[in-house]
C-alpha cells in the first residue's frame, strides 16, 4: 500500500513537473537528452534524420528508470538498417505497469544528402491502456527531423514530435500526447570533444534548455557531462564505452526534487561498413 501511495505521489508530482512530456517519450542516450543535432548517437524516438548517420545496421535495448521506482521505468528497443536508397529504423517503448501503461511504436526513414544535410520522418503509433473495459486506444502521428551540416564542425538539428497535436480520446477522457518542437546544434571542438546545445518546447509545458559535452578520453571510453533547465536545474553525468560490436551507455540525471533518473542502453552493430 505504501508503495502504491508512493507511486501515485511521484506520478502526480512528476506529471505536473514534466507535464506528460517525459512520460510518453523515452529519453535518449545523449547526455541531457540533447539528441536533436547528435550525429553520433541515435536512440528510439530521437530525431529521425539522425538515423542516416548510423553507418552500421544494429539493434539495441534501453532501460530508463525514474527516481528508483520500477513502475516509472521505460523500456525501449530499437533497430536500424542502412540501405543505399533510404535508411530505416524501428523503435518501440513501454512505460508503466499493469494498471496504467503506454506503448509507443515507430518506424522511421531517413536519407543523408551528400553529408550536407539529412531528412527523416518517423511514423509513430501511441497506445494507452484505459482500463480493463476499454483496454488500449491509440493514434498514429508523425515525427519529422532535419539535420543540416553547415560546416564540417557544426550542424544544426530540428525535430518535431507529434506536430499536429493529436490526442487519444475515449468517450470519457482525452489523453493529451506531447507535441514537442526541438532545435539544437552540435559543434566539434575536436574529433574527441563535442559540444551540444538544444532548446525543447513541449507545447503546453515549460521551455527546456540544455548544454552538454562528450569527451572521448580513450578510444573505448567517453565521458559525458551536461545540464538542462526546466524550471529547475538538472545536472547530468554519463559514460559510454564500446567493446567490439557492443557499445554501452549510462547516463544519470540528478533531479533536485525527485532524485535520480538513470538511462542505460546497449547496442550491437551487426556489421561494420
Amino acid at each position: 500500500m505504501n508503495k502504491l501511495i508512493q507511486i501515485i505521489l511521484v506520478l502526480l508530482i512528476s506529471t505536473n513537473i514534466f507535464s506528460q512530456l517525459s512520460l510518453s517519450i523515452p529519453e535518449t542516450n545523449t547526455i541531457a537528452n540533447l539528441n536533436v543535432a547528435d550525429t553520433r548517437n541515435w536512440s528510439a524516438f530521437s530525431n529521425p534524420s539522425n538515423i542516416s548517420y548510423l553507418k552500421n545496421s544494429g539493434f539495441g535495448f534501453q532501460y530508463e528508470n525514474r527516481f528508483l521506482l520500477n513502475e516509472l521505468s521505460t523500456k525501449s528497443i530499437f533497430a536500424n538498417l542502412p540501405t543505399t536508397l533510404v535508411d530505416m529504423a524501428l523503435s518501440a517503448s513501454y512505460f508503466g505497469y499493469n494498471q496504467y501503461n503506454e506503448i509507443l511504436l515507430g518506424i522511421g526513414f531517413a536519407r543523408n544528402f551528400s553529408e550536407k544535410f539529412s531528412l527523416g520522418v518517423q511514423f509513430n503509433y501511441s497506445a494507452t491502456y484505459f482500463g480493463p473495459e476499454i483496454k488500449y486506444l491509440g493514434v498514429l502521428f508523425p515525427q519529422i527531423g532535419l539535420n543540416l551540416k553547415l560546416s564540417p564542425k557544426f550542424n544544426l538539428g530540428f525535430s518535431t514530435f507529434n506536430p499536429f497535436q493529436q490526442n487519444i480520446s475515449s468517450n470519457f477522457s482525452i489523453k493529451r500526447l506531447a507535441s514537442v518542437f526541438s532545435l539544437g546544434c552540435e559543434y566539434f571542438f575536436a574529433d574527441n570533444f563535442v559540444f551540444r546545445s538544444q532548446i525543447d518546447k513541449e507545447i503546453s509545458s515549460n521551455y527546456k534548455f540544455g548544454v552538454g559535452f562528450d569527451y572521448t578520453m580513450l578510444n573505448f571510453l567517453t565521458v559525458k557531462l551536461g545540464a538542462y533547465t526546466y524550471g529547475y536545474l538538472v545536472s547530468c553525468l554519463g559514460l559510454s564505452t564500446n567493446f567490439g560490436s557492443f557499445s554501452f551507455s549510462y547516463n544519470a540525471d540528478f533531479h533536485p526534487i525527485l532524485g535520480l533518473v538513470s538511462i542505460a542502453s546497449v547496442r550491437y552493430d551487426l556489421q561494420k561498413k
Binding site: 544528402f113 550536407k116 544535410f117 532535419l146 543540416l148 553547415l150
Partner: peptide, 13 residues
C-alpha cells in the same frame, strides 16, 4: 535567421 540551400533543397530556420 539562417537560409541554407543545397541542390534543389532549401532550408530556413
Amino acid at each position: 535567421q539562417l537560409v541554407y540551400t543545397y541542390g534543389n533543397f532549401s532550408f530556413k530556420n
